[in-house]
Simulated assay, not measured.
Amino acid sequence: MLPLFMRSIKFLIGFAFVGVLMLALVGTIIDTIQEPPQKTAEEELHHHPKKLDLASNGPFGKFDNAQIQRGFLVFEKVCASCHSLNMVSFRDLEQIGYSEAEVKKIAKDWPVKQPVQDEKAGTWGERDNLASDRFPKVFYPGTGSPPDLSLMAKARHDGAAYVYSLLTGYGHELTPEQQKRFPGAVTPEGMYFNPYFANLNIAMPPPLNSDDQVTYTDGTRATVDQMAKDVSAFLVWTAEPTMQTRHRAGLAVVLFLLITTILAYGAYLTVWRGVKH
């Protein structure tokens, strides 16, 4: 009798424990439905990136060299004073249509020079960039450096669309109601509100703050929107300059597998023709 009684007690305790958990779960669900948790400032105010149509989008995308060259000009004239591009070599620019002579001139005229060390004196100096050099790093003594942009289009979700949205996302302001609901989201002094940035406030001032900050040689009007699109396309290229080669290789593999499958099926029909099952 005692073992039977002990087993009954174990079952009762187990049922009671499960019952308590079920009650707690039901209570939590009811409370969540009646009083849903309030969204954080980031959840409420953060915007998803805008749609950006580039020639490089999709599995059959190709680089638009004219647009990428415009984007490089924007990077050179607007972004390069703060951001590095240290994963890219000057001679890589030949892939987007620059001649060897143009690349050498771009490298030589680049404002940030290559650091060199005098081993005997133990001091550092500078020399002009060569076409074979990577774009030199930009340093801010004592404060660190803004992020390198070489892989930015790969490092951020939505890539080029994120860059484009961030660059054109300045100018938004919190309404008085939003300031009251989210006091922590009010932009601190020295920061800039941007709903496309992860925590809404960014230290970088708007780099593209007016039209015609650069002059395009192909006659394209350099509006803020156009410059943002062009530099976004350029950063897609810097993040994956071999994209077109990868697309061509992928297409060749798919065609090869398709043809092989057709031939294999034809061989199967030939071998088993006339054989009764």
Results as ranks from 00 to 15, higher is better:
residue 68 I to Q: 00
residue 15 F to E: 04
residue 65 N to W: 02
residue 41 A to R: 00
residue 31 D to P: 01
residue 40 T to W: 06
residue 58 G to D: 09
residue 44 E to Y: 14
residue 4 L to V: 11
residue 49 P to K: 11
residue 23 L to F: 06
residue 18 V to G: 01
residue 37 P to C: 05
residue 46 H to R: 14
residue 66 A to N: 09
residue 69 Q to W: 02
residue 26 V to D: 09
residue 23 L to Q: 05
residue 13 I to T: 08
residue 70 R to F: 03
residue 6 M to H: 11
residue 24 A to H: 06
residue 60 F to Y: 05
residue 23 L to Y: 04
residue 65 N to V: 03
residue 62 K to E: 03
residue 29 I to Q: 10
residue 18 V to I: 09
residue 47 H to I: 08
residue 31 D to W: 14
residue 22 M to H: 08
residue 11 F to T: 07
residue 21 L to F: 02
residue 32 T to H: 09
residue 34 Q to K: 13
residue 36 P to V: 13
residue 36 P to A: 10
residue 53 D to Q: 13
residue 26 V to W: 07
residue 6 M to Q: 10
residue 65 N to S: 13
residue 39 K to Y: 10
residue 48 H to F: 13
residue 26 V to Q: 13
residue 4 L to P: 01
residue 28 T to F: 13
residue 65 N to H: 11
residue 47 H to R: 15
residue 6 M to V: 12
residue 57 N to R: 12
residue 36 P to E: 08
residue 51 K to R: 13
residue 13 I to D: 02
residue 11 F to H: 06
residue 6 M to K: 13
residue 54 L to S: 01
residue 67 Q to V: 12
residue 27 G to M: 11
residue 51 K to N: 11
residue 68 I to H: 00
residue 22 M to G: 07
residue 46 H to V: 12
residue 29 I to K: 06
residue 47 H to L: 15
residue 53 D to W: 11
residue 38 Q to P: 00
residue 16 A to N: 10
residue 38 Q to E: 15
residue 43 E to M: 10
residue 34 Q to N: 14
residue 3 P to R: 11
residue 58 G to C: 11
residue 16 A to L: 12
residue 35 E to T: 03
residue 56 S to P: 01
residue 22 M to C: 13
residue 73 L to I: 06
residue 32 T to L: 10
residue 71 G to Y: 02
residue 71 G to M: 02
residue 66 A to S: 11
residue 68 I to A: 00
residue 5 F to I: 15
residue 73 L to R: 05
residue 67 Q to D: 02
residue 36 P to R: 09
residue 58 G to E: 13
residue 37 P to M: 09
residue 10 K to C: 05
residue 28 T to G: 04
residue 47 H to P: 03
residue 12 L to I: 08
